[in-house]
Design a protein around this nucleic acid. Structure first.
Lengths: 374, 374
DNA sequence: CTGAAAGCGCTTACAG
DNA sequence: CTGAAAGCGCTTACAG
């Protein structure tokens, strides 16, 4: 009753909150949470009864139930999640492992995952691998045991380079469901959601050709990743199919986001060869290219056209605005989470071991760095 | 032994992984994880013994210990986190609640939090409130019981408007430590990490004055938030202290990110009054303002100077590049997590109930939308 | 050196 | 309608 009194004060008057704190000093400072046991003691009933009352089961006298429910509500009883998880099979938690969160594409995917997850009452445990194999391993190991029901991952660059996928096998072996997105690998058999990077690059390259370009360069920071490879393939194949010889000198690969290096290589290339279009494999390289090209005095898109991968935020605010290949990041996140959910809930139409690879089509968002189709 | 045999195959040969799956079919599909009990059965010893062996305690015969350790390693034993959490006091997990992840500032803070957390072996449970009070409440309630040791939060817009902070009190009452960053409230007593928004706006405004501007407008999407209020105050006070009358017509407040509305209001204002500088409270409004101003034919910074809050990614890639007030997002995240860590580990120098508010100084990053100081 | 027992907080058959 | 018991997976005094 005393508790109840203070509870009311507490909710209607901030000042009394302090009094509350004073009175219950030890309890509050100890971080003691209300448990079924505490409630059972309060009402002189068994823990089982309290549990059932709180679950609003029918076989409890409605009188007792009401009292217990009211008390639990007032004292803000929340079941201990760990106890719940320990008993049940489901943790209602998903692990998310992404290379970076500062990259808007990954942030978008994350937002999509989070949206669907929270709609279904799932929590997210997040780890940023920073493209490091070690960090990815540690994260997965932590998540694997009892922490999560499933993991959504975009594989770290280092992992892809070293082709070391043991941690994924281990994880799947413990029964955790795995879904990969964007940066995936054929060596691991699981559900995957990828962007049609090949087709995206193919279409962009072909768009250049159709608008009269034939000396098409490619600028990339991410040649080591699976994604980068697919895009380069798409670029090459589009050239071939349009009877344009692939010129290795027009493929500019820079490691990491080295602005100076990019500018230097680009300036060199533009100075020594004819270039009338550049396909940039990421937003930032496109922004840097745009800046360099403007400084060198070329007209865009008349002299040089530009298309950038990833429809992020930069391309919308440059002058001129950059034409982009949109990867539909948020949608990818939603799809990844939906696939995982289906897998977890076993309502996958396919048989247990048949995994799906969902390919999301890119779309070309035409802005001001490309010529119009005639 | 059979297991061991397959284990070896599995690790050295991908193809055998499938065989492994076949053989252990039921076990793998059931998601059965190896427990102490399983190991105990394997060696015909007690669970307690296995537990101690795995913890490498001294009072176990080194022979047995070696065998158990080897077996555990081979079969990739990982302790069930939920059991651990249920026993112990610490969950080694932190809850992070942020309004958005698509906003680079929050993404930066998140990256900072994640960095420090992972350095200290902490996991992150993440929820995006989407500026909704309800979602914030749900998230906090979920996290509070046994899920996390502490919560780092930037308060949702709606929460700040409605001034409904009960869920925070409830959380703190259960013993969970709370740290707020950026969007905070005086009504909740906890550790806080904020940016000196007042001073940031003050300095930016004064910089305008010093470079010869006197008709200084303000453009804001976030007037409802605490952060927005502080910035507006800083702007006003700088004007007053420099003997410039505050002109309400020069304060343009737009709800949400409404591009059209922003352009319209800005065009109207520029058409009807003299304006030689604009302080934009966020990156996007600055980018829109820049675009509008350029289109109207003004020279930047000669006719109109611009300073934007948040040193994100857009401002670096516009033409001209926008001068910004940097909030040091990553640093804020690191600081928030460090404060929480200190609080959790009780090695705070202060007494339990004395909370600190850390104020991070902004810095003005001069680029091309402001005149040089003479 | 090894193990039985208690307990973290919960739920769910099963008795009564 | 209520409760005793078992169990989820673990650790830690405490015996032996």
């Amino acid at each position: 009753m005393l508790n109840l009194f203070f509870y009311n004060l507490f909710f209607y008057n901030l000042y009394s909150f302090c009094i509350f704190l004073e009175i219950n000093h030890k309890q509050v400072l100890m971080g003691k949470r209300l448990t079924l046991k505490d409630i059972a003691k309060e009402f002189n009933v068994s823990i089982a009864t309290v549990s059932k009352a709180i679950q609003d089961k029918h076989d409890i006298s409605s009188d007792l139930k009401k009292k217990i429910l009211a008390y639990a509500l007032e004292n803000n009883y929340v079941p201990n999640q760990n106890a719940l998880k320990l008993r049940g099979k489901q943790t209602k938690t998903i692990g998310v492992v992404i290379p970076s969160i500062l990259n808007l594409f990954f942030a978008k995917v994350f937002a999509g995952i989070e949206k669907v997850a929270s709609e279904h009452g799932y929590n997210l445990i997040t780890c940023i691998s920073n493209d490091s194999l070690d960090k990815e391993k540690i994260a997965i190991d932590m998540m694997v045991n009892g922490e999560v029901d499933g993991i959504i991952i975009s594989v770290a660059k280092e992992t892809q380079i070293k082709k070391d996928y043991k941690h994924f096998f281990k994880a799947m072996n413990t029964g955790v469901k795995l879904t990969m997105f964007d940066r995936v690998t054929d060596d691991v058999d699981c559900d995957k959601v990828i962007v049609d990077d090949f087709q995206g690059a193919y279409n962009a390259t072909e768009y250049f050709v159709k608008t009269g370009c034939s000396n098409i360069a490619l600028l990339s920071f991410i040649s080591e990743t699976s994604v980068g490879q697919y895009r380069i393939q798409g670029y090459k194949e589009a050239l071939e199919n349009n009877h344009i010889t692939i010129n290795k000198n027009l493929i500019i690969e820079v490691k990491e986001h080295d602005v100076d290096e990019t500018e230097t290589l680009l300036t060199l290339t533009l100075g020594s060869r004819k270039v009338d279009a550049i396909l940039c494999l990421e937003e930032t390289s496109a922004a840097i290219a745009l800046d360099t090209i403007k400084r060198l005095g070329y007209k865009i898109p008349e002299d040089i056209s530009i298309i950038a991968f990833t429809n992020g935020i930069i391309t919308k605010y440059t002058t001129p605005k950059i034409t982009t290949v949109s990867q539909h990041g948020v949608f990818m996140g939603e799809q990844s989470m939906t696939y995982l959910l289906n897998r977890l809930q076993g309502n996958h139409s396919q048989k247990e071991k048949e995994f799906t690879t969902k390919v999301i089509k890119t779309s070309l968002i035409q802005r001001q760095t490309t010529k119009k189709l005639s």
